[in-house]
Nucleic acid binder design. Structure first.
Lengths: 203, 203
DNA sequence: CTAAATCCATAACGCTCGGTATGTAAGTAA
DNA sequence: TTACTTACATACCGAGCGTTATGGATTTAG
């Protein structure tokens, strides 16, 4: 049990940047999903060999989890900002506009890593599926809590269903991601978001 | 080129019912998606051997298409009925209630065969993905046309965006299917649908 | 300079995949 | 019965999967 974690670089130093490699892996998972991304796809995009991948990241599942962390940290930051908006409508606006901006970005893949990976049903990927679904459920819970608070704030009518509003908003965002990855144009996605915001209550 | 299609059963008759076998295959595809369903999964559920499957249905892709036809014919019939409703709100109500009923059925798998299969990204399954997306796009176009007519009927305000309404409704249904296959309870799905209908314009 | 440690490259492992060749059983038509 | 047609059962194919064993290259520690 060697617990020496000293950063003294003994032995040959690695020849690639793990952060860049992880970003490349994220792009592959994002485009193809967890099971759709083969190790050859990953190593090709990362520019490293299979043993290097296993030495640096553990295995495919661990690599995916790290890519998912990076994705949430860098690409889903707007969700946290949305929850901090002062009104329920502001939350919905920030969420939908953030999602629209993300889905119409020209440099990132279409679709949502969480959405595409949560739909994978392979027998072996059940753990991944559960993990992604758990993270989505946590975000949904945060949305519900935010709308509950909005009821107290008088921000939405006290008869409103906070859980229903949260799940509806979440469903629209999931559908937005699906239609984006199905090839909808930016104008079509924008019309979807605009209409959703026109329909959103308590303007 | 033997064009004799006479139903004279020459040779050994097959020992299984193709309709039952196709229904069993549909259940497997529905639960696991196109790529997630292996030939072993399919033959086990259908109770037939691999060569029998290929003789009766062609190959895995052809089998999926036939299962998809069966699915649309038997499980998505409510979409056509929805489009025939007299008002735009009636269309939305019928669509969402039909989807809710489907997703909360106790005898069928959760989720939507189209949704789960459209998210498969494997290199080989691109044709399947395109096929499913094309069918979804056709349904979306029908929805758009229906809401355009609703504008003429004075059913929705003339300033409304028919395309936006159609894509929004479609997105809510996609999100509903996703949350259903992610394990949401019937009550949660019902709250989603109820809230969506409360938000729907021109009540 | 030697020894230990760490990384890279190649190739292989066992497994599952979709699809098929082969031989036999079961039915009809003469 | 005899010939022919069709379906079933078994076993196999080549390819791709995630993972790892092996050996050489490159660095630091003593």
């Amino acid at each position: 049990m060697d617990l020496v974690v000293s950063a003294s670089h003994r032995g040959r130093p690695r020849e690639f940047c793990t952060e860049n490699a992880l970003a490349a892996a994220l792009a592959v998972f994002w485009r193809k999903g967890y099971e759709g991304a083969s190790l050859s796809d990953l190593t090709d995009a990362m520019g490293i060999s299979r043993p290097s991948l296993y030495a640096a990241f553990g295995n495919k599942e661990a690599l995916f989890r790290q890519a998912l962390d990076l994705y949430e940290r860098e690409k889903m930051a707007y969700v946290g900002e949305a929850l901090a908006q002062p009104t329920a409508r502001g939350v919905a606006e920030y969420m939908l506009m953030g999602a629209l901006e993300r889905q119409t970005s020209v440099c990132d893949p279409r679709g949502c890593l969480g959405v595409v990976s949560a739909m994978q049903c392979g027998d072996e990927a059940q753990a991944i599926r559960s993990e992604v679904q758990a993270r989505g459920a946590a975000a949904n819970e945060a949305l519900i809590a935010r709308f509950e608070r909005a009821k107290i704030d008088g921000d939405v009518p006290p008869t409103a269903d906070a859980g229903g509003l949260a799940r509806l908003l979440y469903a629209v965002m999931q559908g937005l991601a699906m239609q984006a990855s199905a090839g909808a144009t930016a104008a079509e996605l924008r019309s979807l978001v605009d209409t959703a915001l026109q329909c959103w209550p308590t303007r």
